[in-house]
Each structure stands twice: as structure tokens, then as C-alpha cells.
């Protein structure tokens, strides 16, 4: 029962965050950030005499609010990119390793300072009567 109550509390907290995110996404600021809506831009002519416009249109990003263009997915996202995409995992691991190294270095550098501050906060021992 206690466990269920705790799980419920976590889920409620997550729902509050989700609700707030959803509410914020409905504000005018969010709609400005998301870019122009469907039908807001005038459509380009599909073809020209030399056919250049069609090619441009194919390579240009979609600006009609219908999500990121297919090129954004770099082709490998749907089915998984295999071993070559391990570079992506390695990159994330490297970022985390750099952060850990930087924080460890900083804490090691500031350790004497922290020790000095802690010693200053400690009350002085009572003077010996001897």
C-alpha cells in the first residue's frame, strides 16, 4: 500500500510536469517558436521552364509545420543505423565522461578550501585546564 502510494506520488508529479509542458506549448510564445503554421506560406510553383524550382523544392526544408523534413532523420533512424551509429553512443559517453572529469577536477581543486571553511565553522575546542 505504501509502495503504491509512493508510485502514485511520482506519477502525479510527472503528470503535473507534463500538464505544465502541454499548457506552455499552447501559449502564443510556443506557437511562435514552432515556426509558421500550415498554409501560412505561399506555395512555390511546382515546376519552371528549366525544372530548377522542382529540384530546389525537393531539397528545401518543409516550412509548412508538418514536422521535420525527411532529410533530418538522416535515413538511419527508422530501422537503426548499425555499428556506424555507435559513434553517436560514443559521443554521448564522451560528453558524460568530460562532465564527470571536470566536476572531479573542480572538487579536487576546491577540497582544501572546503576543508578550511569546515574547520572555521567548527567551534574551537575548550581550552585545557592543565
Amino acid at each position: 500500500m505504501k509502495l503504491l502510494l509512493r508510485v502514485l506520488m511520482i506519477v502525479v508529479a510527472a503528470l503535473i510536469v507534463s500538464g505544465a509542458t502541454f499548457a506552455l506549448s499552447r501559449t502564443s510564445l510556443a506557437s511562435n517558436m514552432s515556426g509558421p503554421q500550415r498554409g501560412q506560406f505561399e506555395r512555390r510553383p511546382s515546376t519552371t521552364a528549366d525544372g530548377a524550382s522542382t529540384r530546389e523544392q525537393a531539397s528545401a526544408p518543409q516550412l509548412d509545420g508538418a514536422g521535420p523534413p525527411e532529410g533530418f532523420r538522416r535515413g538511419g533512424e527508422r530501422g537503426g543505423g548499425g555499428l556506424f551509429s555507435l559513434v553517436e553512443v560514443g559521443g554521448h559517453l564522451l560528453v558524460i565522461a568530460l562532465i564527470v572529469a571536470a566536476v572531479s577536477f573542480l572538487s579536487r581543486v576546491t577540497q582544501p578550501l572546503q576543508a578550511r571553511l569546515a574547520a572555521r565553522r567548527k567551534p574551537a575546542p575548550p581550552a585545557s585546564t592543565a
Binding site: 538522416r74 533512424e77 527508422r78 530501422g79 555507435l86 553512443v89 559517453l93
Partner: peptide
């Protein structure tokens, strides 16, 4: 987390 952060590696369904 590492696998989920790399959808190109895992594929969208696994992600």
C-alpha cells in the same frame, strides 16, 4: 539511457 539517446543506433521502435 545511452541507447535511448541514440535513435540512429537503436532504430525508432527500440528508441
Amino acid at each position: 539511457f545511452l541507447i535511448a539517446m541514440s535513435p540512429h543506433f537503436s532504430g525508432i521502435a527500440v528508441h
